[in-house]
């Protein structure tokens, strides 16, 4: 009995508690990201944004959530029901499980995998299935076209993201996310975005495409495809897609902060008194602001130009950068042990 308690039940409870400690704030963050998006874009377009429900409209996300929760879930008669219902769940689950390896501070990580970055990459490469399954199972032209577009788009931009990650890994010498952050310790001048500045820019653009955000939001181009792969979804199934998409945005911002912006570390040594998780959250918010800023600023790309950008511009550039970094490290004998 003692062994059962100490060996299984206690660690089990502990793990569940840790998971809840990440998932619940994440869901709240997703809700308020939608609020921030509407407020920021409103401000940029000189509107007010949501301001009726609660003080400054702060309860708007809750009202939206409640509305989606109470609506009827409609399943089209010609849909492939099982796949139709699995697709939103898959999107949502994948957006959550990836957080297991993100370090929020020194040792503040659920699972300190030594292939953490590959795990993240693997999980984000699975995100395409939720969309493809949704598009196919809806049995509708618009949904299917949206799914096809987004599948091609996500697969293309994953390649350049992979190469960018490789060039960062070359300079840090580890696939463990905590080690990558620790390799950037010592202040802002040691952060990767300074050494990999061109790749940092390409990475930001690529994660916009990877998360299907404007100006690369062709999968849900409302002008041509109504709303793309999720056109037949309603109520909670739609909400799961929405939550998954926004959680993915936050995740990609977290990845960006970990790889390029020094993770939980303070930019200047004397600012160390502010706890690491706060710095990490602050950096995530900065990258998220770029997401919103870009959405309010740029018009949507044309599809062939999107593909051209991915394959003919980003892919050769990131390849060249990997070569350059590798050559530099070997020639100057700076290969990390």
């Amino acid at each position: 009995m003692e062994l059962l308690w100490d060996g299984y039940i206690q660690p089990g409870i502990w793990i569940v508690a840790k998971i809840l400690a990440i998932v619940l704030p994440l869901l709240i963050a997703v809700a308020y990201l939608t609020y921030a998006e509407r407020k920021v874009i409103g401000a940029m377009q000189m509107r007010k944004g949501p301001n009726v429900v609660g003080p400054f409209g702060l309860l708007q996300p809750l009202a939206d959530g409640l509305k989606l929760f109470l609506k009827e879930t409609v399943i089209p008669t010609s849909a492939n029901k099982v796949v139709f219902l699995i697709a939103p769940m898959l999107t949502f689950i994948l957006a959550l499980v990836a957080w297991a390896v993100i370090p929020f501070g020194e040792g503040l990580v659920i699972s300190n995998l030594n292939v953490g970055i590959l795990y993240l990459f693997a999980i984000s490469s699975l995100g395409v299935y939720g969309i493809v399954m949704a598009g196919w199972s809806s049995n509708s032209k618009y949904a299917f076209l949206g799914a096809l577009r987004s599948a091609a788009q996500m697969v293309s931009y994953e390649i350049s993201i992979g190469l960018i990650i490789i060039s960062v890994l070359l300079t840090t010498g580890s696939l463990n996310l905590s080690d990558i952050v620790l390799a950037q310790s010592g202040g802002i001048w040691n952060w990767n975005f300074i050494y990999h500045l061109p790749m940092f820019v390409i990475f930001i653009v690529s994660i916009l495409a990877e998360t299907n955000r404007a100006p690369f939001d062709l999968p849900e181009a409302e002008a041509e495809l109504v709303s793309g792969y999720n056109v037949d979804y309603s109520a909670m199934t739609f909400a799961l897609f929405f939550l998954g998409e926004y959680a993915n945005m936050i995740l990609m911002s977290g990845l960006c902060a970990t790889l390029f912006l020094g993770g939980w570390q303070a930019p200047l040594p004397f600012l160390d008194f502010i706890p690491g998780p706060l710095w990490f959250i602050f950096k995530i918010c900065m990258v998220l602001f770029i997401f919103l800023w870009v959405r309010a600023t740029f018009p949507r790309y044309r599809y062939d130009q999107l593909m051209r950008l991915g394959w003919k511009v980003f892919l050769p550039l990131s390849f060249a950068w990997v070569m350059l970094v590798a050559t530099f490290l070997v020639v100057f004998d700076k290969v990390p042990a």
């Binding site: 995998l113 292939v115 590959l118 990459f121 490469s125 697969v155 994953e158």
Partner: peptide, 15 residues
């Protein structure tokens, strides 16, 4: 063999 596992997911499942 976690490296192989991740590679399997990235290459086979993801691509």
């Amino acid at each position: 063999a976690e490296f192989l596992a991740m590679l399997l997911v990235v290459v086979y499942v993801g691509a």
